[in-house]
Write a protein that binds this DNA or RNA. Structure first.
Length: 557
RNA sequence: GCGCCGGUAGCUCAGCCUGGAAAGAGCGACGGACUUCUAAUCCGUGGGUCGGAGGUUCGAAUCCUCCCCGGCGCGCCA
């Protein structure tokens, strides 16, 4: 809001200075930015540089003229013309200090935008329920969840959804695998199909089903038996997935089954609707979607020549289902290997009469998991894979999420399990969590010493003037902008970096400034600064789905 | 061949959307700081043709074009 006022002042100064500079016509909107170096002020503008050519004067002269015309304001300490013609504004420290009050009022939600009333759905993970989640799902889970949290902070009302395919060839193989293990357990001859699921977990599922349902399922007619065992298996796998996600800090609002869409006839309805819109046609016995009309490189099959719809066909029905629930924005979180499907999905939205802009696909590049530098080989069907549960057991949910949320979605990344675990001492996540715990400890110690945090209205925050204090304040003041930017860019990793930076500034402040001292007034101001930092750190970690501990034990080694 | 993503310090990566002042962080290396609120900390030093070449611009890691290298995708698979 200070920025808006400053912009208005600059606008007025520009207008006042324009005649003297020989400028007529439309004046540009002054763009503000935060200089990299704090010697360059708190806010700067390059408007003089942009106008120099038009004015036919050196940029520095233009800048001086604008500065001279700038009306005074209480929050402006001083204004400088610097470098090639930048106008650097130094804000009064009193203003900077106000952020402590703002944080005190907002708590961990400092920097959040007010509710916009707009609804977004984030659909993520959506792994087929043929087995436990494994490390291949980790980035999707971490990213989707952080994105959902971030959108909430940006004012969206968010629903998290998990879509699962419980029909199709893959599921048949899964069903037959469960069936085979079940039959084995009741003493019948059976074998897991070669292309089925051979992992030990399938045997566990069968054992569980046997314990709950008894041996009677073996005597059902073959078709019925398969369907029954498959659905019993799916139910258990999904429950297990939900438990794993819970441990990972992820909670879904809804689970949607592909089969249920088909059973309600929604897939057929979607195809009919596309046909009516003129975007579906028959060829070679199949029904095709004219995705080439929407930038795809070839048309796509909706219904195969054997009469069975494709996944894409179901996706169209699902799209209608999603839109019919009134979401303003549909966010899909996909691995980059699906980038080729983006055009057809958004095309389908357009063909169905929806705004394709409302369909947003967030892609992330692949993760190579390693142990001691060597890639971890995985095969789900052979049952050789590292589960997400194992990953959480080994490195912890916080460290795993932090690592997964450190990199830009667009960057392929490596996750060395041994390294993230072994290096836990200097893992950045602990650096940040320690910052939070350290503050908690200070507040605890202060209380033990009889120093209570006084109401902020009674505290003289203007006493905060040490460079490391101001650095901390500046970082806190940037958080609302950070959250807005990270959300609009769908880039949670910006929060990770900012949290690390903030923790660093706190550690520096801690080293240079004694919080609890004989100076009561200063102690109160610093306690509040520490408290505000703690709240903001907890808020940022919260958006990343990472815990903010009150205490951390010093490691021995 | 076409498409998407990457290429920035020894290593791992931010910064690029919306161009701006000496290009940042962590790790690693080297040298310092604990009688004081947790040293899981802090300070300092060294380290970069921002893949290459053109272009736009007063100004390019950032925008445009081409090229090189790497990853991924291009089924009536899931």
């Amino acid at each position: 809001m200070i920025e808006d006022e400053l912009k208005e002042l600059l606008r007025r100064a520009l207008q006042a200075a324009a005649p003297g500079l020989g400028l007529d016509g439309e004046l540009p909107e002054p763009e503000l930015f935060t200089p990299r170096q704090k010697e360059h002020g708190d806010v700067a503008t390059n408007v003089a540089l942009a106008l120099a050519a038009r004015a036919g004067r050196p940029p520095v002269e233009v800048a001086r003229a604008i500065v001279e015309a700038l009306p005074p304001a209480p929050f402006v300490e001083r204004v400088e013309v610097a470098g090639p013609g930048f106008i650097n504004v130094f804000l009064a420290e009193r203003w900077l200090v106000d952020v402590v009050r703002a944080v005190a009022a907002a708590g961990e939600r400092f920097g959040w935008a007010p509710p916009s009333g707009r609804r977004a759905q984030v659909e993520f993970v959506s792994a087929n329920p043929t087995g436990p989640l494994h490390i291949g799902h980790a980035r999707n889970a971490a990213l989707g969840d952080a994105l959902a949290r971030l959108l909430e902070a940006a004012g969206w009302q968010v629903e998290r959804e998990y879509y699962f395919n419980d029909a199709g060839g893959q599921m048949d193989r899964f069903g037959r695998s469960v069936e085979a293990r079940y039959l084995e357990l009741v003493g019948r001859e059976a074998e897991v199909p070669e292309d089925g699921y051979h992992g030990e977990y399938v045997r566990d599922l069968a054992r569980d089903i046997l314990a709950a349902e008894g041996p009677g399922l073996a005597d059902l007619p073959a078709d019925e038996r398969l369907v029954r065992l498959r659905s019993e298996g799916v139910r258990r796998v999904l429950a297990q997935i939900e438990r794993t996600l819970e441990r990972f800090g992820v909670r879904f609002d809804s689970f949607v089954s592909e089969a249920s869409l088909a059973e309600r006839g929604e897939v057929g309805a979607a195809v009919d609707r596309l046909r009516a819109a003129g975007y579906a046609y028959e060829a070679d016995g199949a029904v095709w979607f004219r995705s080439t009309a929407f930038g795809d490189d070839k048309d796509r099959v909706l219904v195969r020549s054997n009469g069975v719809h494709t996944y894409f066909g179901a996706d169209c029905a699902y799209l209608i289902d999603k839109f019919s629930r009134g979401f303003d924005r549909l966010v899909y979180v996909w691995g980059a290997d699906h980038h080729g499907d983006v055009a057809r999905l958004r095309g389908a939205a357009a063909a169905l009469g929806y705004d394709p802009e409302a369909v947003e696909i967030v892609l992330y590049q692949w993760v190579t998991f390693r142990r001691g530098g060597e890639p971890v080989a995985m095969s789900k069907r052979a049952g050789t894979f590292v589960t997400l549960d194992q990953l959480i057991d080994e490195v912890g949910a916080d460290a795993a999420r932090w690592h997964l949320l450190t990199f830009s979605n667009d960057a392929a990344m490596s996750f060395d399990i041994d390294e993230v675990k072994r290096r836990s001492m200097d893992n950045p996540v602990y650096y940040v969590q320690y910052g939070h715990a350290r503050i908690a400890s200070i507040l605890r110690k202060a209380r033990e010493a009889g120093v209570e945090l006084r109401p902020i209205a009674e505290v003289d925050l203007d006493l905060l003037a040490h460079p490391s204090e101001l650095d901390l304040l500046r970082a806190i003041a940037g958080v609302p902008g950070l959250i807005a930017t990270a959300a609009s860019m769908r880039a949670p990793h910006r929060l990770t970096h900012a949290a690390h930076d903030l923790a660093g500034r706190f550690h520096r402040f801690y080293t240079e400034c004694r919080v609890v001292s004989d100076d009561e007034a200063l102690t109160q101001a610093r306690l509040w600064l520490a408290r505000a930092t703690q709240l903001v750190l907890a808020g940022l970690l919260g958006l990343l789905g990472i815990g903010a501990p009150e205490r951390m034990e010093r490691p021995d080694a």
